[in-house]
């Protein structure tokens, strides 16, 4: 165990600037999750997925281990702030987030020149919702959960398209994002393409 008096400089070989970016996006995800928590929902597990916005922004900025740290921070932070860290809700959140994040990451890395953030967001939402439905079937509801699957998936479809549109705009116009992409050096070309596209 490291000392509490040591600043977080490096984590498994990850530099402090990257750690700062991860922590900022994780905090932003937590902020959006809190905003979403305050929005009334017809059923407690129906989510808009606002907290996934920073997760999608992180696709172009981080390597897989860094990206997984961001996702883990998002899940743990949400569990802590909503007080659900030791409950079934946490299992849903973790299952959906991990599956969708991995799916989005690999989709982005393999096809980022062929698919927009709308498509990535859509696939991520469908993956997350499907995993959550499966978990709900086995943990709480039984097979009758599939009765609410159509509206659940439909809501995921609509919110993920809106989220994808927003991420497209954000990544095209954000100065913070463009400098972060340049810094990461992972997908600099894509980042520059997006910026020049937005400028034109």
């Amino acid at each position: 165990m490291s000392s509490d008096n040591t600043p977080v400089k490096r984590l498994n070989g990850i530099g402090s600037e990257i750690i700062t970016k991860i922590a900022i996006l994780a905090a932003f995800s937590l902020f959006l999750s809190t905003v979403e928590y305050m929005i009334p929902k017809p059923l407690p597990f129906l989510r808009i997925g606002l907290a996934n916005l920073p997760i999608m922004v992180g696709l172009a900025l981080f390597s897989l281990p860094e990206y997984l740290i961001l996702v883990t921070l998002k899940i743990a932070g949400q569990g802590l702030i909503n007080g659900t860290l030791f409950s079934y809700i946490f299992i849903y959140s973790a299952g959906g987030s991990i599956a969708s994040s991995l799916m989005m990451y690999f989709l982005y890395k393999l096809f980022h020149n062929k698919i927009s953030y709308i498509g990535i967001s859509l696939v991520g939402a469908m993956t997350s919702n499907s995993v959550q439905l499966l978990l709900a079937q086995y943990l709480l509801f039984g097979s009758s959960i599939w009765i609410i699957a159509p509206p659940f998936l439909l809501m995921g479809l609509v919110s993920s398209i809106l989220l994808g549109i927003f991420v497209n705009h954000f990544t095209g116009r954000s100065r913070w994002y463009s400098s972060a992409v340049e810094f990461s050096g992972l997908n600099g070309k894509r980042g520059r393409d997006e910026i020049s596209h937005a400028e034109t």
Binding site: M1, S2, D4, T6, P7, V8, L11, N12, I19, T20, I22, A23, I24, A26, A27, F28, L30, F31, I69, T72, L73, A76, G77, G79, L80, I81, G83, L85, F86
Partner: peptide
């Protein structure tokens, strides 16, 4: 359980604290 504002050990715990600082 989390009402006591627990601290988590190790570097990941520090990173989590940093996340809450930004939050």
């Amino acid at each position: 359980m989390v009402s006591g504002k627990p601290r988590f050990p190790g570097r990941f715990g520090q990173l989590l604290s940093k996340q809450f600082l930004y939050f």
